[in-house]
Nucleic acid binder design. Structure first.
Length: 791
DNA sequence: TAGTTTTAAGTTTTT
DNA sequence: CTTAAAACTA
């Protein structure tokens, strides 16, 4: 309704399929723009089209466009879709806030004294560092403090900021925060919060830098703006000059990241902060049928303090959502499996049409084991377990230390792993020596001139001579491992050709997979080093003894540690050799942990937390665990409760055609079964917006009985056929070819048996392709022999 | 001091 | 019930 008043006539053809509001949003120019986009209103389409339009019809240089999102998934999707409309969109900068911050700091961090080869500390690393600063404090206390520091950075608060009291008023916190910052600066690494906060500081410190960026980015688009925090707002402000075109997109009803500093006021007050803002509302929902939207709205309507908007379904009537009351979580899992199984075998849907939503990651376990048992293919989204594994973190610590020898956290983690006689006392001495080197006024060696400040490798060498023989030898092993990898990394040096490490320029990784040499007790585990970086990773992991260390554990517990290390090395092979490539790899690992585990399974049910569903859609959705204490969590009230309610809204509006909600009468928590109350949100649903099945708790009236023919099948008893016959597991000996079922790995067959030190070791090949070795007569609860006809 | 056993604690949600 | 931290022993 403004300057772009007659679109239809002059609109390019690719815009004609947009509705009038969407067109207005795409064509708008001249003033800041706030797009209030309800769920399923074609928001991503508008942004991608707008990018394409700016390039194609407004003659914008793609490189002058910056679009930021909150998740890597969203960034990728946006890039893909924009490129389809306009190939040159590939040159625009489409990144997450954090990835943009890292990109920025690598190039411009020097104005703050930051070395370009910094490593990004994750939450665990910051806790480790903080622990060294907080000496006698308990682990919980350290974690809490780490959280407060992260929060402070979200709010763009420094240790000396008066407003820091909002976060924590105790003065001891200020001191700890200050010491943490100081230590971080010495180490030369950054945490997540720094990726946002430091760019703002850099832009403020250097007006020339700010001007350069304002000249470069003429257009800035922000997606999911309702989840931005104060620091991100400051970054946006700092990047914007008077000429910059700003467009933010969001939905206040979908703000679900308050807990990590998201500030809804950013979107509520955007028009005040950016004078002259125009607002476009997208209120036509193309995703869900009307009954689904009715249900979602009836709950979120209970929130106060929203901008208020009315979503209309463009799809019209549909199936009434179903609310199932179930006795316990086992029934809930069975209910979902049954529902999906019947629908798929009845050919009314595919597995990939379905998504199971839950509040906490821990809830996925039950679904995983039952789906494995029933052979329902599934995909768990966003479980970042891989990078949290001990062996993977060890390998990454080695690589981090290689890049930044001042990295105390990484050093402490791996210098004495496996045990080499370098104990805590020795490590403390080295750390002290390193920091002494920083301030040493003794001109004796001129230590602080050539970049050796805080260098733990250099400090180690300095103390070597004064150590015991054992510690000295151990430390030398470690140092030479790192040194060897450094040579391999930088010089493409000839590197030992011993172990298939291969030259870094080997064009393809040989697929000559042989059996793992089992019998021999030789030390070197069979890791293969493929191309480029991965050769370096393998070399380092082997030389430093990490591979050997974890191989020992594999034999005992039947774990996958060596395989995981191999997987990490494989991931590294995607990056070029050399320090540049290594930095890229590490940054990717820290910033994008979503493993693309689409291993061939194309038709699979999605298991996902409610938070992770943002931006996604599925034909059929099951929201589980609608009980007080689970969803919402019991201590939630006020603003926090409203946020949980929005989370409900987000979950429900993911559904296109069918929505199911489950609630259990009792649930196991910490191993104990406890009675539960139905979620508050269930009470808030308009009674006729939902069809209820199962036994209703007090306070709920069934609107309709379930169809008689189905109700029995819907809530089956726990004893499946497999369970019944499989119990007699451990009688008799194992033979090659025996069928097994394992709670974690699923179905498989014994492929090899051999005598180990502690009894027979059997090797099992699972359907997923994994080969796992198990020791003797073991954990029969997780692992059992089954009969052929069950299989 | 390293590796084991015992005890306590804990699950939000994520870049 | 599972994991991490303290406590304990060889």
């Amino acid at each position: 309704m403004s300057k772009n008043s007659k679109p239809a006539a002059q609109v390019p053809p690719y815009l004609e399929t947009l509705n009038p509001e969407q067109q207005e949003a795409v064509l708008h120019s001249g003033s800041p723009l706030l797009i209030l986009a309800g769920a399923g209103s074609g928001k991503t389409r508008v942004i991608t089209t707008k990018i394409a339009y700016l390039i194609r019809d407004r003659g914008m240089d793609p490189r002058s466009i910056l679009a930021v999102t909150f998740t890597n998934k969203a960034a990728r999707e946006m890039a893909d879709r924009a490129r389809i409309i306009e190939p040159r969109a590939g040159d625009a900068m489409l990144r997450t806030f954090h990835s943009f911050g890292a990109w920025f700091l690598r190039r411009n961090g020097s104005v703050l004294g930051l070395n370009p080869s910094f490593v990004i500390y994750d939450d665990d690393d910051t806790v480790s560092l903080l622990a060294t600063l907080m000496g006698d404090s308990s682990r919980a206390e350290v974690k809490h403090t780490a959280h407060l520091i992260a929060r402070a950075k979200d709010y763009f608060l420094n240790p000396d900021d008066p407003e820091l009291d909002i976060i924590e008023h105790r003065s001891s916190f200020r001191k700890t925060y200050a010491r943490y910052e100081e230590r971080m600066l010495q180490i030369g690494n950054v945490d997540f919060g720094d990726l946002i906060k430091k760019p703002v500081e850099a832009l403020r410190v250097s007006p020339e830098l700010a001007q350069r960026f304002r000249d470069r980015f003429r257009v800035i688009l922000v997606d999911e703006y309702q989840d931005s925090n104060v620091a991100q707002f400051e970054l946006l402000k700092a990047l914007c000059g008077p000429e910059t075109y700003v467009c933010v997109v969001g939905d206040d009803d979908q703000s679900i990241y308050r807990f990590r500093g998201a500030e809804v006021r950013n979107i509520l007050e955007f028009p005040d902060r950016f004078p002259g803002t125009e607002i476009v509302r997208l209120e036509r929902n193309y995703r869900s049928t009307a009954p689904i939207l009715d249900l979602a709205s009836s709950v979120v309507d209970h929130n106060e303090g929203r901008l208020g908007k009315k979503l209309r379904s463009e799809r019209g009537p549909g199936k009434t959502p179903t609310l199932a009351f179930l006795p316990d979580q086992d029934s809930e899992v069975a209910f979902c499996a049954e529902l999906i199984g019947q629908s798929v075998s009845g050919k009314t849907s595919r597995y990939s049409d379905w998504a199971v939503l839950y509040r906490t990651n821990a809830q996925s376990l039950g679904f995983e084991t039952e789906f494995l048992r029933r052979r329902i293919p599934y995909r768990v989204v966003g479980s970042l377990k891989f990078y949290e594994r001990e062996e993977v973190k060890d390998a990454l610590a080695l690589l981090s230390f290689l890049v930044n020898p001042r990295d105390e956290v990484a050093f402490r983690r791996v210098v004495n792993k496996p045990a080499r006689g370098v104990g805590a006392a020795t490590v403390d001495r080295i750390v002290l020596e390193a920091s002494a080197g920083m301030f040493a006024g003794d001109g004796g060696l001129g230590l602080s001139q050539d970049g050796l400040e805080g260098d733990l490798a250099a400090a180690s060498r300095r103390v070597l001579s004064s150590l015991s023989a054992k510690a000295k030898a151990g430390l030398e092993t470690f140092l030479s491992a790192v040194e060897g990898a450094r040579t391999l990394l930088s010089g493409d040096g000839p590197g030992g050709e011993d172990d298939g490490g291969g030259s870094a320029s080997d064009p393809e990784s040989p697929k000559t997979k042989s059996k793992k040499g089992g019998k021999k007790k030789e030390a070197a585990p069979d890791l293969r080093g493929g191309v480029g970086l991965s050769a370096c990773v393998v070399r380092l992991v082997q030389d430093a003894g990490i591979a050997e260390y974890h191989l020992a554990h594999d034999e005992i517990a039947g774990n996958q540690r060596i395989a995981n290390l191999q997987e990490l090395a494989n991931a590294a092979s995607l990056y070029p050799a050399g320090e540049e490539g290594l930095l890229e790899f590490l940054e990717h690992v820290e910033l994008d942990r979503s493993m693309e585990q689409d291993e061939g399974v194309d038709d699979a049910v999605t298991l996902i937390t409610l938070h992770n569903t943002k931006g996604l859609e599925f034909p059929r959705v099951i929201m589980t665990g609608l009980e007080q204490g689970v969803f919402p969590r019991d201590d939630k009230k006020g603003d926090d409760l409203e946020e949980e309610r929005r989370l409900f809204y987000v979950g429900a509006t993911r559904a296109m055609d069918e929505l199911y909600i489950t609630s259990c009468a009792q649930r196991r928590l910490f191993g104990r079964t406890q009675p539960t109350q139905p979620s508050l949100f269930l009470h808030e649903i308009t009674p006729d917006a939902v069809r209820i099945i199962g036994s209703c708790p007090y306070g709920f009236t069934p609107t309709e009985q379930p169809p008689a023919d189905r109700s029995s099948g819907m809530v089956p008893n726990r004893s499946g056929p497999i369970n019944g016959q499989a119990k007699r597991s451990s009688d008799g000996r194992w033979q090659v070819g025996d069928r097994v079922f394992h709670d974690d790995y699923g179905y498989g067959a014994v492929t090899n048996i051999r005598e180990g030190d502690d009894g027979p070791v059997i090797q099992v090949g699972f359907e997923t392709g994994r080969e796992v070795r198990f020791l003797s007569e073991f954990q029969s609860s997780r692992f059992m022999k089954i009969q052929a006809d069950d299989f």
